[in-house]
Design a protein around this nucleic acid. Structure first.
Lengths: 359, 359
DNA sequence: CTGAAAGCGCTTACAG
DNA sequence: CTGAAAGCGCTTACAG
């Protein structure tokens, strides 16, 4: 007695041998027919006999045996720090699943919590299971070092890039997003009193644990903003630092402080939606109307944008497209080994209008 | 030439046969040593020789071959309509992963979009891959019919229940949640002007597509609320219907209408956080302060609770615990075939206080 | 046009 | 105390 029966329940599984027996042909023939190999010309009669037998028995080939034989498993894995388990970012999973669906491929979801030892163990486990490829991702857009084990298998980076130029990677066009945000404000008539909310406190990239990951969103969005403003012959009036975390509470307190200091911004560009929501709440509590007195622009396009009145205008992260493209590149196998940038588009809300001075 | 090399890259994978050769023993012996079978007494010398050979070669057993032989794959699947790809609810994935981590088990994530034909295809595909079990879940807490294919494999229901009493299922204690919400308001001194926001429009369980799924949250939370109020000798002053969807915009418009109608609630219990946020916005826009004039209580404990001032008090869905428990029950194999209810706990915010009349 | 045989990399009774 | 052999369920050259 070996444990084989444990995975099953009720009826024994139908095997290729049984189909062959029922159809009165060899196992080879059944395999050829069921895999649609037309290069071998089988008689039409044999063909239909085999198909019928398979149907009648409800035969479905065992994928484990197939994998052992062919080396291909029809599975890929999404390995990341937290993508699979985090709100909102996990829209990337949706995109991945969409692409895989058409390719009849199953997905392992693996979150490593950013722990290298756990990551190694899980990568090894996946490779031992003959995954056809791995999508290696990060919740924050950042630069990562490609784990050695990953090189045993085809892979694509998702929402992160590596130093190695010969690596396929898919990330949002954060620079373009910054330009989009600034351009929208310029188009509305803003120019001289545009502030940015969300730089790291002076002298630190540290502070909160995740700061040490150096999210690319901050420098690249700023770069895009600076570029667009410079092209219009202007620049940011100032920047507000946020310590700890880009959340509602910190957005609120930072902007409350800004307003209390006597600053009179015509528009705020906030590093993300949570900070943008906090900014709106602080402005409104200080008696300033959004957008009549101050316009507010944010990034991410998360559900938080609908949680304020007026709703928040935001440049949306293309999570789903990122996932979809990464999976496509992996499946194609012919992915250009370069960084693929996915555009971020404006998600319209009601927090932007002409500056009050222009009214 | 057969396709075997395709899944690999660079070095060929080390096999058990090579370890045996290097250690100068048979493959059986290597297998026994590496699987720590102490019932067979091997000489200490053999033992260390094998271990050393395996280490030196960096041997890691091929899981596919192991699965084919033993019938156990060390994998389970989370099959649901949308859990893997939806914000917030996907905290269930986190819980599942936590439990699996300790058991050295990998997770397939599969979303069926609620399409039965896709579901069948995917279930079959998983069973063909010899998954050790399936967690079958739903994004909304509801009653489902167990798919026939699921019965080929051990399974546990997650966030849903079936008619079949002999089924292990894990769902939130929604009735208790209703009681918790009502009790918190009673404790704060509310009694006669407590309203509920979020019933279906009269005469429908339809309307929005998802209404036809009959989420258990509504009737069970109401049951808990009614019970707690009745025990205190009172009852709801009224209920407000919400059509389409339980979102911010609908919460806002429904409560705006309620207030405009001249109703003077002392507290609102909202079916979820989004509706609760909309309620707060509508109250504040009508010049009523939260919680000084009206207390607001919600359900879910989502990130939206932090997006309003004051922050929202909510009875939180225990997504992570649900996932963790479901996976544990599946792994144990000895899961009691019954419905396991996980308590929902109060997630404190600042939207509750004593009623204005009591001040 | 079709079958017999080898082999993927393991585990596990069975012999000695 | 350890090895030789069978077998999990497939695919695929190789013969005929």
């Amino acid at each position: 007695m070996d444990g084989r029966s444990q995975g099953l329940r009720g009826d024994r599984r139908v095997t290729l041998t049984e189909v062959a027996k029922r159809a009165g042909v060899s196992r080879s023939t059944v395999s050829f027919v069921l895999n649609g190999r037309t290069d071998l010309r089988l008689s039409a009669d044999t063909f239909t006999r085999v198909r019928r037998a398979a149907d009648e028995l409800g035969y479905s080939p065992n994928a484990t045996a197939k994998t052992l034989r062919t080396g291909r498993s029809g599975t890929v894995a999404l390995v990341s720090d937290f993508i699979g388990t985090t709100s909102f970012a996990n829209a990337m999973v949706r995109g991945v699943l969409e692409s895989l669906h058409d390719a009849d491929t199953l997905l392992y979801t693996v979150d490593t919590q950013g722990e290298p030892s756990l990551e190694s163990k899980l990568l090894r486990s996946l490779i031992n299971r003959d995954v056809d490829g791995i999508i290696y991702g990060s919740m924050f857009t950042r630069t990562i070092a490609v784990p050695e084990l990953l090189r045993n298998v085809p892979f694509v980076l998702l929402n992160c890039v590596s130093d190695d130029p010969d690596t396929a990677a898919v990330i949002p066009d954060e620079v373009g997003a910054g330009a989009t945000a600034a351009s929208a404000l310029l188009a509305a008539g803003h120019r001289d009193r545009i502030w940015f909310v969300g730089i790291f406190p002076p002298g630190t990239t540290g502070g909160a644990a995740w700061h040490s990951w150096s999210p690319l969103a901050l420098p690249e969005r700023l770069q895009g903003i600076d570029g667009a403003l410079a092209a219009a012959g202007t620049e940011l009036a100032g920047s507000v630092a946020i310590a700890d975390d880009w959340d509602v509470a910190n957005g609120y307190s930072s902007v409350a402080k800004l307003v209390a200091s006597g600053a009179t911004p015509s528009a705020l560009i906030c590093i993300n939606d949570a900070v943008g929501v906090g900014a709106c709440l602080a402005l409104q509590e200080a008696g300033m109307r959004v957008p009549d007195d101050v316009s507010v622009m944010a990034f991410d396009g998360s559900p938080l944008t609908t949680a304020v009145r007026p709703t928040l205008t935001s440049v949306a992260l293309p999570h789903e497209q990122l996932g979809r493209l990464a999976a496509q590149l992996l499946l194609d196998g012919t992915a250009a080994p370069r960084v693929h940038r996915v555009p971020m588009t404006l998600s319209p809300g009601h927090s932007i209008s002409a500056p009050s001075s222009a009214r």
